[in-house]
Write a protein that binds this DNA or RNA. Sequence first.
DNA 1: AGTATAGATTTAACTGGACAAATTGCGAGC
DNA 2: GCTCGCAATTTGTCCAGTTAAATCTATACT
Lengths: 248, 248
Amino acid sequence: MGSEPASRTPRYAEILAILRGEVASGVFPVGATLPSEAELCQRFSVSRFTIREALRRLQSDGIVMRVQGAGSRVVRTTPASVFVQRYRSVSDLTQYAEDTHLEVQSISDVELGEGVARQIGGAAGETWCYVRALRRADVSAAEVLAVVESYVPRRFAKLAREVESISGPIYAALSSAAREPIENVEQEMQALPAPVHVAAALGLTADAPVLRIMRRYSAASGTLIASFNWHRGGDRYIHRASLSLDAG
Amino acid sequence: MGSEPASRTPRYAEILAILRGEVASGVFPVGATLPSEAELCQRFSVSRFTIREALRRLQSDGIVMRVQGAGSRVVRTTPASVFVQRYRSVSDLTQYAEDTHLEVQSISDVELGEGVARQIGGAAGETWCYVRALRRADVSAAEVLAVVESYVPRRFAKLAREVESISGPIYAALSSAAREPIENVEQEMQALPAPVHVAAALGLTADAPVLRIMRRYSAASGTLIASFNWHRGGDRYIHRASLSLDAG
DNA sequence: AGTATAGATTTAACTGGACAAATTGCGAGC
DNA sequence: GCTCGCAATTTGTCCAGTTAAATCTATACT
């Protein structure tokens, strides 16, 4: 690498591979700081630009975190992902058109049982605000697309009562109210026999197969909202996703 | 921008914002090529490094595609994603531990009906290789985790016959055989009543709710493999995903 | 012991320059 | 009209250098 660059592999890519290998083999374990850019320039006899190209890609891989004044700290030992699925809009995530209408049926305080508590990130015995609603294509549509059961922490009960009039996704309004960004969304999907109230709302026979999608939107302080969305089975509702190779 | 940089906003970020605005407002529509780096350096009176930082981020946003020798072509007018879900391994994607065992029950040539053809990216009337298999935790396990029905183009029939002995994911082996990278994965999930052969294999009553996940792995030439995975309903199989805000 | 400040260190932003590699368009030849 | 080769153009890789901004550590003061 003190000589001419190999015609095929850029120098930064060679250095990147070496650094990846050293992280993976434990030379630099999680928590360790890599040598500084200046030290790496000396070690590999290349310009700072070349080192920065390698380090930039290590950061993009999620392997290091680069901090001005501090250095490059290892945060994981393997690349962060293989496939990636990008959701470009709320309607991509929920698979409703953005102008669907949520009609609230009831709002009440409920004490969480163990099962629900575990799923929504609360604790058994806690009191949360429970909202049952029907989702339709628009205000005047007769057909129910989905039954939606949401749990919101008690401190947001007031906001939950206004859910029909909120424009944009409710999780964004809750994020604003909490003054915290949504940090992640957990999603669980399973096939279930339709409970009585779901079968009735969706016009199904009792115990017909339905797809239930639970989504939990969390900030640093915990769950802001968790919703159970009950959809018809078969071709009446197909949850689609498109993944691409991660270009990291 | 010919003067001192604003203390807060890097110059490349200002240029990025301007270029984003010009793309969004139609000055550069999808398909158009942005001015060259050299022209942008002249326009904004900055060095090529600064322009490249802006363009690099436009590419990372998914807004342009930069091609050596050709320029930066606009491929979309808005940033590509809001939420992102990363799959770090095959087991993340399929939600099987990596050492599960696939036991082939039958392999045959089938002529595609319209419905299946549409789902798997083939054409009605085409002959594909059909593989029916059972997935178990390991070779000696008695319990069937899932019923797997796969469709593979006829040209890969030989490889399909060796599916039990392939180490690593079958789609990677097919990608090698085709000498093409997997470009994307389409996934469809729906709740269905268990067909007879699925109910029998999973030990369910006829018409019990099951979750069917179809995954289609495609290269530029088309579908390399499409598999229908039939899972038990209820808490016996929960398909989980974790999404984070896209740091784009 | 706790806090503030100064200096050293490290990465971020930026300049100007060079050569290599890939693409595109044009002209010539068949 | 089609194909091939060459030149112009554009982005990729890389160098050497500078100043700015952020972090960390050590020292001094209360």
